[in-house]
Deep mutational scan, measured.
Amino acid sequence: MQIFVKTLTGKTITLEVEPSDTIENVKAKIQDKEGIPPDQQRLIFAGKQLEDGRTLSDYNIQKESTLHLVLR
């Protein structure tokens, strides 16, 4: 499924993921596309910060959901 990741600069990254993918996994995909190390990434969905060990389905993230990427 496709999800979108919006950065603070207003750029939107499109990722191909599975509901069973972990947040860690998603961060690795963002690193592949954008070169941002996962340890600098914070992903936010519905106002919650997403934890590395959880999966997209844990957070009920469905196709075409938009996550927000904050760098630390």
Rank of each mutant, 00 (worst) to 15 (best):
I13A: 03
A28Y: 10
V70N: 05
E24Y: 08
Q31P: 03
R72E: 15
L67Q: 01
V26R: 00
E34C: 02
D39A: 12
L67M: 08
L43Q: 00
D32W: 10
T7Q: 09
D39T: 08
I36A: 07
L8E: 15
K27I: 15
E34T: 08
Q49L: 10
R72A: 15
L43S: 00
T14E: 08
M1F: 04
F45H: 09
Q2A: 03
T14C: 02
L50P: 01
L8F: 08
G35M: 08
L71Q: 02
M1I: 07
H68R: 06
V5M: 05
I61F: 03
L43R: 00
G35F: 07
N60M: 04
G53S: 09
T14N: 06
V70A: 15
K63W: 11
E51H: 05
D39S: 08
T12P: 08
D21M: 13
L43T: 01
I13W: 12
F4M: 14
D58R: 06
Q2W: 10
K11L: 07
K6V: 08
T66F: 06
T22V: 12
P38E: 15
R54K: 02
K48E: 12
S57K: 04
E24S: 04
D52T: 03
L71Y: 06
G53V: 08
V17T: 08
I30H: 00
D58T: 04
D21F: 09
K29Q: 11
T55P: 13
L56G: 00
L15W: 01
G10S: 14
S65F: 05
I13R: 03
P19Y: 10
P19Q: 15
P19R: 10
E24M: 05
V26P: 00
N60T: 11
P37I: 12
L56P: 01
I3P: 00
V26A: 06
I30Q: 00
D21E: 06
K6Y: 11
H68E: 13
D52I: 05
E64C: 02
K29R: 08
T7Y: 12
T9M: 07
Q62V: 06
G47S: 10
E64R: 03
Q62Y: 11
N60C: 02
L69I: 15
L15Y: 04
Q2M: 08
S20M: 09
D21A: 07
D39L: 05
T55A: 06
S20G: 15
M1A: 04
Q31N: 08
Q62M: 04
E16K: 09
L15G: 00
I3Q: 00
G53A: 08
Y59C: 02
D58F: 04
E18G: 12
D58K: 13
L67C: 01
E51D: 09
F4N: 13
A46W: 09
E16I: 10
T22N: 13
I13K: 01
G47A: 15
R54F: 14
V70T: 15
Y59F: 10
T14K: 04
P38M: 11
V5D: 00
L71H: 08
K29S: 10
T55M: 12
T55I: 14
S65W: 06
E24V: 09
T66K: 03
I36W: 13
I3S: 00
D39Y: 11
E16W: 11
M1D: 06
P37A: 14
L71C: 02
A28F: 13
L67H: 01
L56A: 05
S57A: 15
K63H: 10
I44P: 00
F45W: 11
K48D: 13
E18S: 14
L56N: 01
R54T: 10
L56S: 01
Q41K: 03
D21W: 04
H68I: 05
R42Q: 07
L43W: 02
D39R: 14
S57T: 14
R42M: 13
S20R: 11
M1P: 01
T9P: 08
E24C: 03
E24W: 05
P38T: 14
I44R: 05
K48A: 13
K63T: 11
L15K: 00
V26S: 01
V26Y: 00
G53M: 07
F45G: 13
K11N: 15
L67P: 01
K11A: 13
L69E: 01
L50A: 03
I30K: 00
N25Y: 13
I23V: 15
D21G: 11
E34K: 03
Q40T: 06
M1L: 14
L69F: 12
K6A: 13
I44L: 05
